[in-house]
Write a protein that binds this DNA or RNA. Structure first.
Lengths: 114, 114
DNA sequence: CACAGTGTTCGATGAATATCTTACAGTCCC
DNA sequence: GGGACTGTAAGATATTCATCGAACACTGTG
């Protein structure tokens, strides 16, 4: 039982950075990695809060995956929330697009090259 | 004298890549560097073919500068032409913007953060 | 031709960072 | 509480890459 009580979570909440506080350089660096681009693309194709970190099909270990999500959070690209034992994700489309117009679209538009 | 004859150049012409043939990842990686961003911005503020490589005020040696220009060429961001002993530059605004709409504007918009 | 100016190439070095393995900390269910 | 599952943290390794110094190539000029 115990349907998530208010004071019951002994778990460190993920640290987020709002896109507003992200530099262009940080944003570009975050998106200049094949694994992270794949994560963002896959995430963009799923409804919010439906994908746990482990549900992404990338060929790196879970430690590396965790690191990449940390980078994405720090770039204001992803928001995370703890849901039971899993950590579910959401792509911050609106907010990120407001800060960097067109950038996300550019990455999501999976054109041929690369 | 000898006003640049056609067959007179014994110099290796710079290798260019058209923005069409550039992957998103390459483009983002090229722009995810403070020195290169500075070069691009400075170049954007000058008329085409007016700036030689050495005329840019970045605090790295000329070897590093040469390397950065090579990366910018490879990303389809810069076009170069030999003019006497100097190599003059041009920002490929139109072409690059056609391939990656909005990306260049994003970088040139020198907003506060960073 | 010698020389100064400009830019590239090469080798080495150092800093970031992507990755793995292992260990640990929560959460849920039996 | 024990155990399966999910994710993070720490330490080690490897690779990428930005940078420098020195050597080299080409240009134009005295």
């Amino acid at each position: 039982m115990s349907n998530q009580v208010e004071g019951g979570s002994h778990r460190a909440a993920p640290v987020h950075t709002h896109p507003e506080d992200v530099s262009v350089l940080t944003a570009l660096s975050a998106l200049a990695d094949p694994v992270r681009v794949q994560l963002v693309r896959e995430l963009a194709g799923s409804p919010d809060w439906t994908r746990s970190c482990g549900s992404f099909d990338v060929r790196v270990g879970k430690a590396a995956k965790s690191h990449h999500f940390s980078v994405l959070r720090g770039a204001g690209l992803v928001e995370q929330r703890d849901e039971g034992p899993k950590r579910v994700n959401r792509l911050r489309r609106e907010e990120f697009d407001a800060r960097f117009p067109g950038l996300l679209d550019l990455v999501l538009r999976a054109d041929g090259t690369d």
